[in-house]
Design a protein around this nucleic acid. Sequence first.
DNA 1: CTTGTTTATGCAACTCGTTGCATAGAAGGA
DNA 2: TCCTTCTATGCAACGAGTTGCATAAACAAG
Lengths: 188, 188
Amino acid sequence: MALDHAILVSLLEQPGSGYELARRFERSIGYFWTATHQQIYRVLKRMESDGWIDVREVPQQARPDKKEYSVAAPGRAALAAWLHEPIEPESVRHDLAVKIRGAAFDDPGALIREVERHHRTHTDRLAHYLAGERRDFTGPDAPGEPDAGQELQHVVLRGGIAYERMTIAWLEDVLATLHRLAAAHGTR
Amino acid sequence: MALDHAILVSLLEQPGSGYELARRFERSIGYFWTATHQQIYRVLKRMESDGWIDVREVPQQARPDKKEYSVAAPGRAALAAWLHEPIEPESVRHDLAVKIRGAAFDDPGALIREVERHHRTHTDRLAHYLAGERRDFTGPDAPGEPDAGQELQHVVLRGGIAYERMTIAWLEDVLATLHRLAAAHGTR
DNA sequence: CTTGTTTATGCAACTCGTTGCATAGAAGGA
DNA sequence: TCCTTCTATGCAACGAGTTGCATAAACAAG
């Protein structure tokens, strides 16, 4: 049940509306967590009724009004409690790996297009992360005064970058394997 | 809804009971997919009533009887259909990353133990995968006669190995960052 | 002036996944 | 003898996540 906590962290970094949160979850928070606006609105409503977060109606011109949420003391306490309890290391769920093993009972060559598509997606994501890194984590860096929040955001982003690089290299391995099998299949 | 397909692939590789599948999902299939026995039994029941798989009651001595499942023609067709339709590249959900960013609003040093624990888990998993690789994918390798199924299982395993190596390196990066912040916090 | 896009919020229904519990036979150790 | 462990299957309830749909105001393009 970490969506609650992911939202709390995001609101602590910067208060905002459900809609804004949903967009953050497509960007920076999306490096390590995804959520649709439905989930977000539902969780916000529950956390509000539990007193974890405060709402402020913000009238806007040129667009619909919004509800800006910020973290209240009980929410902060709930986050702190969660931070101090251990969590299980996650297990992976990789649909593509199922397909790859399934290809043994079908035509391995048919998967090549699909793997290439994934390769492109991950290449794009890597470029996106690297652009974000250049934008947010290079520059002055006032020595002797490192901001803990920045440092922690950066190390999480480095994790996303490492993940994408690893995935891209693996997909190239997969492609080479599929090409080899398709060739063997053809010349048999 | 790839659990269905993961089970079909596993049953094609080797027919077996729900219990056996659950154990496979803790081992080799667990490289890229996890499932509890509850999920597996439920899906097996549904797939059986849909005619995707066949059952055979196997009486055993010295242990309870079991139901051995194998893939029927409609199941194979359903798998083939799924293999040919595109899937979305997965997004990550990493609780630990939420905690790391959350640590900016708490004591970063308090996370060190937790991260060390994850580091140990992933180190163990890597050792386990490498042992599996030595066991299953080194040896004769009759030249000119590569088994497609073996090759594909191996490339998936290499993916698991790459993932664990990447994660271990990242966790070391995280630890170094947390130590740095804790030191700065202490001498402030 | 209608259509499509962006901002903004939400309900309802459904599927997927987890947790707790229950049963049951056989083996092995205290 | 009792207790635990391993094999083997399953129900019930709940919580998490997805999908489809609905509303509504403002603006831009055709």
